[in-house]
Computed example of a mutant assay.
Amino acid sequence: MPDLTPLQFHALLPFILPPSPQGRRISDLRERMNGIFHVASGADPWRCLPERYGKPDTVCRYFRRLTQAGLWERLLVALKDCNPTHPLWEIAKGIFRACRRAVRLRGLRFIMLIRRLGFIDALNGPPDKVPNPAIFTWLKRFDMPPAPTGPRQDEIFLDIIRLLKRLHRKAGGVLRLPRATRLAWS
């Protein structure tokens, strides 16, 4: 992903945290954000971040701080609400890729938000492989039907149990996505 233009960076600024908790100014904020988007757009680890973006540990720590503060959730909601000509839409692909990295830190609620907003590109894998919390909520409300009666009652009951097991497995997603699948999804 190319570096942020001044217009894109200024569109992003209202969503970014204020300066550091100690009140110090972050002089290279734009470069840090460029570094985050650079790492998010590739498959390389943080330690492979080019020097021009700053120290990899610092940029990684800032990414975690932004993630814990809910930046990516706020950006996704803003993307949903803003006009398609807004500068945020120009960097939407980078935002989605950063969200893929943030999913590990934010968990199921973040996945649920991504699915609810309809940004499937922000999921960290193919939709059928990623957990689907909406199925969990449906399963919680599911009332077990009364025990069937008749000659095939055992078969019908076992079919219901198998269906519930499949739904539960689908709701939980795949335990571990292979690296090739994750990289292909990017």
Rank of each mutant, 00 (worst) to 15 (best):
G70I: 02
F63G: 02
G23R: 03
L49A: 04
L66D: 03
G54D: 10
P56Q: 09
L49M: 07
L71Q: 05
R65K: 07
P56I: 08
V39W: 02
F37P: 05
E51S: 15
R64V: 06
E31L: 14
Y62I: 01
G42N: 10
R30D: 03
W46R: 09
D44G: 08
N34W: 05
I26P: 00
F37Q: 02
R30H: 06
L71H: 06
L29W: 05
T58K: 08
D57W: 07
K55G: 05
V59M: 07
Y62E: 09
G23W: 05
D57H: 07
F63W: 03
I26R: 12
D57C: 02
W46V: 11
V59K: 04
P21K: 14
R47C: 01
A40R: 04
E51F: 09
F63A: 04
R25S: 11
Y53T: 12
I26Y: 01
R30C: 09
R65S: 10
R25Y: 05
Y53K: 10
C48V: 13
L66N: 11
G42D: 05
L66P: 00
L71E: 01
P21Q: 13
I36G: 08
Q68G: 05
L66K: 00
A43K: 09
L66R: 01
D28M: 09
G42W: 04
L71K: 04
H38D: 03
N34H: 11
R61C: 04
P50K: 15
I36Y: 06
R61W: 02
F63R: 01
A40M: 12
P50W: 15
A69R: 09
R52G: 01
R30V: 06
S41F: 14
R32L: 02
A69D: 15
T67E: 01
G42H: 12
F63K: 01
Q68T: 11
P50C: 12
M33T: 02
P56L: 04
G42S: 13
I36K: 05
F37M: 09
R25V: 14
S27P: 00
I26C: 03
D44A: 15
G70C: 01
G70M: 02
W46P: 08
D28H: 10
L49I: 03
G70E: 00
R52S: 07
C48Q: 12
Q22D: 15
S41E: 13
G35K: 08
R32M: 12
V59H: 04
